[in-house]
Amino acid sequence: MSPQTPPTPAETPLIGDYAESSAALTGARIGVVTFPGTLDDRDAARAVRLAGGTAVALWHADDDLGDVDAVIVPGGFSYGDYLRAGAISRFAPMMTSIAREAQTGTLPVLGICNGFQILTEAHLLPGSMIRNDHLKFRCADQVLRVENTSTAWTSQYTDDELITVVLKNQDGRYVADEETLTRLEEEGRVVFRYVGSNPNGSRNDIAGITNAAGNIVGLMPHPEHAVEAGYGPDDAVGMRAGTDGLTVFTSVISSLTSSGAAL
């Protein structure tokens, strides 16, 4: 056979066009960051749309946040979890821009799973995640108690509401020194706490926390996987019918529209 120019492979977009077919109910624009190895960016973007917002794709190598009103750092295995989960991603230009805006205490930022790990590596949230105490990857429905409903991401939950979302990770064990744990507890900055058996050995059963200003929230479980009946955790209504995670996304959109930021 004579050598031929190989066919050009169909271009697979590395980053989704979330704007398509969006009929957003509000003007809230929520950025969703994609790193190499991110898995849950499309799920997070879909959760934003289902909640009535507009999802905006943000690429890790860009540094322009555009006109987004809030940012989600989604889950996955950015940079293959090489070195430590989130250790390399935190130096991405987009993370530098997010950190600058988030540290003013106004831009709502949510880190889910690997996103939470990135926020701790970036020192935007205290503590760190290490290997689960049982050393296994765990994927299961998990009950959480929402203990802080004053953040932008939890404002529509009721105090101490129990929710069920998916937990899936291997490095999910939250650790921090005693002083940090005491401060988190005293200041009411534990946002989500594991209920039932502790799934990974996290200190104080902590599943998610917020910063002092309350605009940055990180959690290991995945609210974006519990937003649509048929694809969520099992609940009293039926198999995979759970949508308890959707309130995270309606909360932030509600906070943004009521504060006028997105109008």
């Binding site: 070195l83 250790a87 020194d177």
Partner: peptide, 8 residues
């Protein structure tokens, strides 16, 4: 800055 995380 990179090779270690001072928290852990």
């Amino acid at each position: 800055d990179l090779l270690s995380n001072p928290v852990i």
